[in-house]
Simulated assay, not measured.
Amino acid sequence: MEQLKEHDCLVFRFPLDGRYLGWGFVRNGIRFDAPVNARMISDDIDALAQMAVEGGGITRLAAFIAEPLIANGKLVALFTQKPVTSETITSALEADAQVEIEPLEFYLCVRHRRELTPKVRAFSQFLTETLPERWRA
């Protein structure tokens, strides 16, 4: 993944703490962040998507942002997510250098069980029922 340093990358910065969203990959079962050449850094995913559409570089986008742009031919997927199974791990070991993109994970967190109010439970159930199957673990 050293090749990412040779491209202009549009990098997402978390607004709360200023950390960058890493470009995570898995090779032979080991997770790593690829080094990138950050041309632009933003905490606005829509701005990064628009910059990519305009030819400003490559970026890592959430599926709900990227999929419509890919379907319209405005963006091209460079890396695709394959489900990790014993078969993909075995083939990665056999290929010796096969790299897969690391999926982003999302969690619903509460400080204490008593904060799991009916509204929060309803929101959790809504997410579980409405997210596409391929986005769920």
Rank of each mutant, 00 (worst) to 15 (best):
T85V: 09
E87M: 06
F32C: 10
L104M: 09
T85Y: 09
I89C: 09
V36F: 04
Q125D: 15
Y107R: 12
R19F: 07
K5A: 10
D8I: 03
I45V: 07
L127S: 04
R136M: 15
R111L: 12
L131N: 06
E105I: 07
E100T: 11
A97D: 15
I89N: 08
R27P: 02
K82V: 11
R31E: 03
Y107S: 08
I101M: 13
P15D: 01
T117L: 09
S42D: 00
F79M: 15
R13G: 00
G57R: 07
A47Q: 12
L75W: 04
M40Y: 13
P132T: 09
A63W: 13
R121Q: 15
R134A: 14
D8L: 03
F14K: 05
L10V: 10
A62G: 04
A34L: 04
L48F: 03
M1T: 14
F79P: 00
D33P: 02
E2G: 12
L10Q: 02
T88A: 01
I70Q: 02
G29C: 01
N28C: 12
F106S: 12
A95H: 11
N28Q: 13
T128Y: 14
A63E: 04
L16Q: 09
A34H: 02
Q125L: 09
A71E: 11
F64K: 04
F64Q: 00
M40H: 06
L78S: 06
F106N: 04
A62F: 10
L75S: 00
C109K: 03
F32V: 02
I65R: 15
L4P: 05
G56C: 02
A47P: 00
V110A: 14
V11A: 00
T90Y: 11
T117R: 05
P15R: 11
T88V: 14
G73W: 10
T117Y: 06
A77I: 07
A95K: 13
P103Y: 09
K82P: 08
F32S: 15
E87S: 05
E115A: 14
C9I: 11
H112M: 08
R31K: 11
F25M: 06
F64T: 00
S42R: 13
I101S: 03
L61Y: 03
Q3A: 15
A49P: 11
E102S: 10
D43P: 14
I41F: 08
P83E: 00
E105C: 04
A77S: 15
P103W: 12
M51H: 15
Q50Y: 01
E67C: 06
Q81E: 06
I101T: 11
V53E: 08
N72R: 15
V36E: 05
P132E: 01
M51Q: 10
Q81S: 07
M51I: 12
E2P: 04
T130C: 04
R113G: 04
Q98A: 15
D17L: 11
D43T: 14
L108S: 02
A38L: 10
F123L: 14
G56P: 03
L4C: 01
I58Y: 02
E94H: 06
C9N: 10
I41M: 15
L93C: 08
R39F: 02
H112G: 05
M1N: 10
F14G: 02
M1E: 02
K74S: 13
D33H: 15
P103V: 13
L61N: 01
H7A: 00
G29T: 01
L48T: 03
E87D: 14
